[in-house]
Lab assay of single mutants.
Amino acid sequence: LVRYRTISKIPQITLNFVDLKGDPFLASPTSDREIIAPKIKERTHNVTEKVTQVLSLGADVLPEYKLQAPRIHRWTILHYSPFKAVWDWLILLLVIYTAVFTPYSAAFLLKETEEGPPATECGYACQPLAVVDLIVDIMFIVDILINFRTTYVNANEEVVSHPGRIAVHYFKGWFLIDMVAAIPFDLLIFGSGSEELIGLLKTARLLRLVRVARKLDRYSEYGAAVLFLLMCTFALIAHWLACIWYAIGNMEQPHMDSRIGWLHNLGDQIGKPYNSSGLGGPSIKDKYVTALYFTFSSLTSVGFGNVSPNTNSEKIFSICVMLIGSLMYASIFGNVSAIIQRLYSGTARYHTQMLRVREFIRFHQIPNPLRQRLEEYFQHAWSYTNGIDMNAVLKGFPECLQADICLHLNRSLLQHCKPFRGATKGCLRALAMKFKTTHAPPGDTLVHAGDLLTALYFISRGSIEILRGDVVVAILGKNDIFGEPLNLYARPGKSNGDVRALTYCDLHKIHR
């Protein structure tokens, strides 16, 4: 019993810090008490220290592992850092350059016999395009090294910054494609005289377009951006097909006994025919423009016929181009109408809503002055909100995010209106959640004399007048207030005048 009563005193000691020596009952000389009392004092002292730490809000209350900052290894790049964003855009520009100039170089340097010394005699450094290609190869190699040090988000939505895990993730992902696209074939085969082989191998750079397509997928929600990307894709495919079309004609031209190829026909049409040795002929500019003209006309199913396939190889390629053109029509131009419709969806919704308003007016036989006010209010409210119901949009977000959005939407009023000066951010967040926005066209009466005042109004834009009878008592403008002081009276009061809008007004109100 003594032991039980001794232990039962522990909660009292913990909360009230009572010393055991003052209790005459606990001072009985028993061996059990002498053993338990020192333990009680020690526990009391420890609990006292913990309570003191909690009340003082000291940093040592938290466990040590929670006080440590997340460790980022040296030379690790955050995937959302500004440097990584700028670097990704730079790589994107280099990939676009590669997609345009690599097929052009591979096709127009394929057994090209233009006048001038061969590239091997001039030297590697004197070729501007080769120098640019070398810079692109170096940048792609540097990009691989950067990807080995860039964080990523795993399946659990955690940012991984450990170098080993980053390397394994990159090896399992895009490393092989990036490595093949970054191989400097110019340096590996330079001086061997195989410019045709170098041009063909350099087309491996186009593998990076797969990554670019995935990154550009984030802009699919913007109709104008999608339309622009589709047109660029169409032009890029036409450019690639033009390079292939020229390569076919250029390879067949020296081996044909009869002059029936499209390059021969082009030379005869523009007065620059090929001679018996295969030299001469149109310039590279004429060849490229004509090839691009043929691919565009074939892809769009126009086909004027002034550039036509004559050999079997050219006919087979033309059939493939027609098939590609039909697929592009289905996948690209078939979506253009939907994209344009999405661009004008706001206008369509406006006309639909206006039609419903006019049908309501016609069905209920609203008189002319009231009908005009109804239409003007709808037009003004639509121009202010673009038909978007803010309350319906915010309803799907958590309250903390709703408060931040409301604070942002009402920031101008909260910053410049005098009653809100000096208020804490928590108070402003709470008030912003209570605001209701209303609009009024010129001549609209917001409050009639004798109406119950259940709200306090803040003028965000425009001006109003307060009338008693036919006498203008006051004219209020931006950041002015009218209405009933909230919670100042037990019952809502009545208006002693009319409140009429002089201009288009936007008002925020808080109800009782």
Score class of each variant (00 low, 15 high):
Pro70Ser: 08
Trp89Arg: 01
His264Arg: 06
Ile138Asp: 03
Ile189Cys: 11
Leu343Lys: 06
Phe234Pro: 01
Val159Ile: 10
Asp217Val: 09
Ala440Glu: 04
Leu279Gly: 14
Ser337Asn: 15
Arg342Gln: 14
Ile166Val: 05
Glu314Ile: 01
Met390His: 04
Ala182Leu: 13
Ala155Asp: 10
Cys243Lys: 01
Tyr384His: 14
Cys417Ser: 13
Gly281Gln: 01
Tyr384Glu: 15
Gly426Cys: 04
Ser301Arg: 07
Ser81Val: 01
Trp89Gln: 01
Arg349Gly: 09
Ala224Lys: 01
Arg421Ala: 09
Phe140Asp: 01
Tyr274Cys: 01
Ala119Gln: 01
Val210Ala: 09
Asn312Arg: 01
Gly223Asn: 04
Leu206Glu: 01
Lys66Phe: 12
Ala449Asp: 13
Phe190Asp: 14
Ala167Ile: 05
Pro184Trp: 01
Pro367Cys: 05
Arg205Thr: 04
Leu413Gly: 01
Val321Ser: 01
Ser313Tyr: 06
Ala430Pro: 01
Gln415Ala: 10
Phe397Asn: 01
Val336Lys: 01
Pro103Trp: 01
Gln253Ser: 11
Phe397Lys: 01
Leu197Val: 08
Leu299Trp: 01
Val321Asn: 01
Asn265Cys: 03
His169Leu: 01
Gly191Asn: 07
Ala182Lys: 01
Ile166Asn: 01
Leu145Met: 15
Asn265His: 13
Ala432Pro: 02
Cys126Gly: 01
Lys111His: 15
Asp133Lys: 01
Leu428Glu: 03
Pro282Ser: 03
Ala204Gly: 10
Gly334Glu: 03
Gly280Lys: 01
Phe175Ile: 01
Leu431Ile: 09
Gln127Glu: 04
Ile260His: 15
Trp89Ser: 03
Val357Leu: 07
Ile339Gly: 03
Gln68Tyr: 06
Asn265Pro: 01
Ser331Gln: 01
Phe140His: 01
Ile77Lys: 01
Leu207Arg: 14
Phe185Tyr: 08
Arg356Asp: 13
Phe83Ile: 05
Leu110Glu: 15
Leu229Arg: 01
Ile405Asn: 01
Thr438Ile: 11
Pro442Asp: 01
Ile135Thr: 04
Pro398Val: 02
Ser161Pro: 03
Gly396Arg: 08
Glu64His: 09
Leu394Ala: 04
Lys84Cys: 06
